[in-house]
Simulated scan of single mutants.
Amino acid sequence: MADPDEHPTDLPECPSVQGEGLLPAELRAWMVMLAATGAVERRLHAVVKERLDVSHDEFLVLCLLAEQPGGVRMTRIAELLSRPKTRLTYQIACLQHAGLVTRRSVCGDKRGVEVDLTDKARRLLEEASGQLAETVARELTRFMGPAQCEAMRALMPDVAEEQPAE
């Protein structure tokens, strides 16, 4: 397994970045995105555990709820995060036990359950969001080349202009 502290310039360039293989540009771009998001996720695991004391999967649930004021149905969360409903039920129970989410029945639907963030979760996310955003930006710029960083800046303006020196 590769050393996560190794700078990408110390490693051979990813073949999919070179554009000399059989894959069309869309598939090359997809492979670069997968690799970069994998690097971000590996770094986020530790930061999320330290700052929020939840698992990475639980963090994804919190992020989804943070963007949906008023709550989200459990079936929709499972769909958006591609999670089995039974696994999501366990994660929601853990988050509820930690005081980070609430569950309530959906009016008019006996089986429907809606989940929402608590004020505690909103406060924790707000306090941790700066460090989490820095982690994302730093890992993307560590992994992606200049052309990919330029494209990413259209989505995330805070992605650094230059590759960090390490």
Rank of each mutant, 00 (worst) to 15 (best):
H97R: 14
G38A: 12
K49N: 12
I77N: 04
V40Q: 07
S16P: 03
V17G: 03
S82T: 14
L23M: 04
R104V: 03
T89M: 07
V106G: 01
E67Y: 09
M33N: 14
V113Y: 00
L11G: 02
G112W: 00
A36E: 02
E6I: 14
H7L: 12
V48L: 06
E114V: 02
G70I: 09
L64V: 05
E79K: 13
V106K: 02
V48M: 06
R28F: 00
K110F: 11
L64M: 07
F59I: 08
M74G: 04
E26P: 01
G99V: 04
L34Y: 07
A29N: 09
D53P: 03
V61G: 06
E50N: 15
G112S: 00
Q91S: 11
A98N: 06
K110R: 13
E41P: 03
R43D: 14
M33H: 08
E20N: 10
L22F: 08
Y90F: 12
W30G: 02
K49S: 15
F59M: 08
V101F: 01
D5L: 14
H56M: 15
R87N: 12
V54P: 03
A78C: 07
R83W: 08
S16N: 10
D119S: 15
T37M: 14
C14E: 12
A98D: 07
H45G: 07
A66C: 11
V17L: 11
M74K: 12
T86G: 06
H45Y: 09
S105H: 11
G108K: 01
L81P: 00
V106D: 00
P8D: 15
A66Y: 10
C14R: 09
L52A: 06
R76M: 08
H97W: 05
L88W: 00
A93M: 04
T37L: 12
M33W: 09
M31W: 04
K110C: 08
L100I: 05
R103Y: 02
G70R: 08
S55C: 09
A25V: 11
L62W: 09
R104D: 05
H97N: 09
R43P: 04
G70T: 09
L52K: 05
R42K: 11
V47W: 06
E58T: 10
G38T: 09
D5K: 15
T89R: 11
T9W: 13
V72C: 08
T86I: 15
E114H: 01
M74H: 06
K110P: 12
M74A: 11
Q91C: 05
A98M: 05
E50Y: 11
